[in-house]
Amino acid sequence: MTDTPLLEISDLNVRFDGERTVHAINGLNLSLGQGEMLGLLGESGSGKSVTLKALLRLLPPKRTQIDGSIRVNGADIMTLSGRRLSSYRGGEVSMVFQEPALALDPVYTIGDQIAETVMRHRGIGRKAAMEVALDMLMKVRIPSPERRLKNYPHEMSGGMRQRAMIALALSCRPKLLLADEPTTALDATVQIQILLLLRELQREFGMGIIFVTHDIGVAVEISERVAIMYAGNIVEEGSTRDIIRDARHPYTRGLLSANLHNVAKGTRLEAIAGAPPSLETEPVTCQFAPRCPNALPACEKGLPPFFVPGPGRRVACLLENGATAD
């Protein structure tokens, strides 16, 4: 069991058809060990949320072309359907969304919503399920949980709602938790509380977490490993320490400087020029090359392969091949 990776995504492609075609994910490979905490970092449109939704099979089937394979604990996810799919969702893998006010049902109390999930997945009675719900609210450190069990989502503050959302997601003890920007809508003082809570719960429950964020500071605070996405694929991956100390991909370096950590007043920011590509056609060259300050002629000729600059790292950039522009 321990040598099976918790999650193995290989060669995932996601294309949306409609008025205009969008190649959202292009040949993504990603794996996650049991109990590992991975930060998936990228800007809007880079495909991080689509990756999470593909994992839960939440993408609209009629308008989406998906190929590639996704395995969770060795089981193929792409072929699941019907009851097996619904017990996989929430049972084995569950998700925390950015806006808990939208993700929670406004007409049911928090207790009812958690209990419903528990009854459905574990097949236990309502009374026992309510006790699980109470226990979960205590686990996410909601003050006076007995009272909060009977609260509707609108009666809670933003931070409290996100705690309730986490309690709901973890109520069936999933092996893998997908967190889609869960702290982006919160104040910084509340954000840090939620990050510390997730870190504690991860240790307690031993689950794997993929934490999607656009904020490199948040990724550093929570994850052991970081993967940076750009234009539907990973451009760099490595331990958080390596990425912070020695980012190799020009895009990662641009993101790090755009974070403005300890930037003094009056300095000129090293902004990445331009904007991300629209992805209307399938990428055949390095998608970052048009914005890259160090682009080589070869960057416009084909997709860059992954280079391995160190253990546990990979970078999709031709500059790693010994060739340098400067």
Binding site: A188, T189, I192, D215, V220, E221, N259
Partner: peptide, 14 residues
């Protein structure tokens, strides 16, 4: 409450 940007020196206490 600002993220520390240092994996060896993370915030431990909110």
């Amino acid at each position: 409450a600002m993220p520390s940007m240092d994996p060896d020196n993370r915030t431990m206490e909110p």
